[in-house]
């Protein structure tokens, strides 16, 4: 910055879907096809005993909170679309490891 005016220029919170990279999510869907049927009802997050919003299905990606999953399977019981959420969590973590990042 050349000149200080006493205020900053902000980037807005807009998500640019044109730049969205869905490769990770697509690869997960090859193994757990049913996750695409998610209609984002939030039952899985609501019932999770960890209470950290472990699963955020608005966009499948690795999230640090996943490591706190107890693998209890409660989310599996409540999903109205019958998504195998336990399998999904494991697969997201596996895929993340494959991408060469420590979980």
């Amino acid at each position: 910055m050349k000149t200080k005016f006493g205020f900053d220029i902000h980037d807005n919170r807009q998500i640019d879907l044109d730049l969205e990279d869905t490769r990770f999510a697509d690869e997960v869907a090859v193994v757990v096809k049913s996750w695409k049927a998610c209609m984002k009802c939030g039952a899985c997050v609501g019932t999770c005993p960890v209470g950290k919003g472990v699963l955020n299905l608005t966009g499948i990606n690795y999230q640090p909170a996943l490591t706190t999953c107890l693998m209890c399977g409660k989310c599996l019981l409540v999903c109205p679309r019958g998504i195998n959420t336990r399998h999904l969590i494991l697969e997201v973590m596996n895929k993340y490891r494959e991408y060469g990042k420590a979980v």
Binding site: R13, Q14, I15, D16, L17, D18, K40, T58
Partner: peptide, 12 residues
């Protein structure tokens, strides 16, 4: 807006 993410979106 993606109201489930509470964020505005842009798409072409």
């Amino acid at each position: 807006e993606d109201t489930l993410m509470s964020r505005p979106i842009k798409l072409t």
